[in-house]
């Protein structure tokens, strides 16, 4: 059946079974490559996207459950950031994406879609997170390579930059 969802600011119609996980619609039908399959069980966070600014696991979200919620994927993060911060124009990168590059945080990078989405969710709520808040908020996003220290450092660096910019 044809289902219309709102993704990265645009209405997108796809022909899919209603029980199809949102992840497969995003990656296979809409050809978005931010969200990634990690476990299919909502345990690792590789597939995370924002729904009305709140992080959800797209692998465990049937397309029929999306409804009117506005989905933002990694690709749409700079535009969402501009909207949240009332900037005239979307930057090339969300400050956290830039911080991850600046810190050379990634190893394999497979989990970084989720780390970025979840970290951006935190930064949309506070630009002065403590280390304890970061650990708590990010818990549930696994990184097998062990880049956690650089993720935490990057979130703090992005927060500092955002605070400075007001």
């Amino acid at each position: 059946m044809t289902i219309t969802i709102k993704v990265n600011g645009a209405a997108r119609s796809v022909d899919a079974d209603p029980d199809t996980p949102l992840l497969y619609v995003l990656t296979n039908d809409l050809e978005l490559k931010g969200p990634r399959f990690g476990c299919g069980l909502a345990q690792c966070g590789s597939c995370s996207v924002l729904a009305d600014g709140v992080e959800i696991r797209s692998c465990q979200t049937p397309i029929s459950d999306v409804g009117q919620r506005a989905i933002t994927t990694l690709e749409g993060l700079p535009a969402l950031y501009a909207q949240q911060r009332k900037l005239p124009k979307a930057p090339d990168l969300h400050p956290l994406q830039q911080a991850f590059i600046d810190e050379q945080a990634l190893h394999c990078g497979y989990c970084y879609n989720g780390q970025t989405i979840k970290g951006a969710e935190l930064l949309s709520r506070t630009t002065s997170p403590t280390e304890a808040q970061i650990r708590d908020h990010m818990n549930g996003h696994l990184c097998r390579c062990g880049t956690y220290p650089r993720i935490m450092k990057s979130i703090q660096a992005a927060a500092a930059k955002m605070s400075k910019e007001g």
Partner: peptide, 21 residues
């Protein structure tokens, strides 16, 4: 000397070509 990895920008933005994509 530290030199930046060429694959980081693509991996941070979703533009990278993974096996899975």
């Amino acid at each position: 000397k530290p030199v930046r990895r060429p694959d980081m920008p693509g991996k941070a933005t979703g533009a990278h070509v993974w096996m899975h994509d």
